[in-house]
Amino acid sequence: MSKFAELLNTQDILLGVEATNKPGLFELVGQHMEQTYQLPRSCVTTSLLRREQAGSTGIGEGVAVPHARLSELDSIHVLYLRPKEFIAFNTPDRKPVSDIIVLLVPAPASPLHLDLLAEIAHMFSDNKFREELDRCKNEQEIKNLFDCRS
């Protein structure tokens, strides 16, 4: 099993997300992290927005990987989100995104942070994988698909 799959919990797979823009998306991520892990919402939202202002985390082909370092974290958290409507993310190919991987890491970041970003980029560069992911209809199917990607 990949390190990404090991870190992704079914409760952190959010489908049909009601967000129409990046700030709204990051606010929802902050709400989820506060409700699920008691992490202050504002820390998550602000860190993701600050990182996005430094440069878009949209990688293209309908995928974005917003990520941030938070001193409040003790361990890495990953989330997979699928918005109800595509979101503009200033991607290199100018396509809106439908698959969003959020990576939250403790500050200072470890080399694992970069390894995870590389693993995610490699996984989502595979057209067949993205098609299989689009066919997944619920959280468990998505988790199973990520688990099988070793």
Rank of each mutant, 00 (worst) to 15 (best):
S2Q: 10
A5F: 06
E6Y: 08
L8P: 00
Q11E: 14
Q11R: 12
L14N: 01
L15F: 08
L15E: 03
L15Y: 02
L15N: 05
G16R: 04
V17Q: 08
A19K: 01
A19Q: 05
N21C: 10
N21L: 04
K22P: 05
L25F: 11
F26S: 04
E27D: 09
E27S: 06
L28V: 04
L28S: 04
V29S: 01
G30I: 01
M33C: 08
E34A: 07
Q35K: 09
Q35Y: 02
Q38M: 08
L39P: 00
P40V: 09
R41N: 12
S42Y: 09
V44W: 01
V44E: 03
S47P: 12
S47W: 05
L48F: 10
L49K: 12
L49E: 14
L49Y: 09
L49R: 11
R50V: 12
R51G: 10
G55M: 05
T57N: 13
T57Y: 10
T57C: 13
G58F: 06
E61K: 15
G62I: 08
V63L: 08
A64Q: 11
H67K: 04
A68C: 04
L70C: 14
S71L: 15
E72I: 12
E72Y: 11
D74E: 15
S75T: 14
I76E: 07
H77K: 12
H77Q: 11
H77G: 00
V78R: 01
L79R: 02
Y80R: 01
L81D: 05
R82S: 13
P83V: 07
K84F: 10
F86D: 11
I87F: 03
A88Y: 07
F89N: 02
N90Q: 09
T91D: 06
T91K: 06
P92I: 03
R94A: 13
R94Q: 15
K95G: 00
P96W: 02
S98L: 08
I101Q: 02
L104T: 01
P106G: 03
P106R: 05
P106L: 04
P108W: 00
P108L: 00
P108E: 00
A109C: 09
A109W: 02
S110P: 03
S110T: 14
S110F: 04
P111N: 11
L112V: 14
D115T: 05
L117V: 13
L117A: 13
E119S: 14
A121G: 15
A121F: 14
D126V: 13
N127W: 09
E132A: 14
D134M: 15
R135K: 15
K137Y: 09
E139W: 02
E139Q: 14
E139Y: 02
E141F: 11
I142W: 04
I142T: 07
K143A: 15
K143G: 06
K143V: 07
N144T: 11
F146Q: 01
C148V: 09
R149E: 13
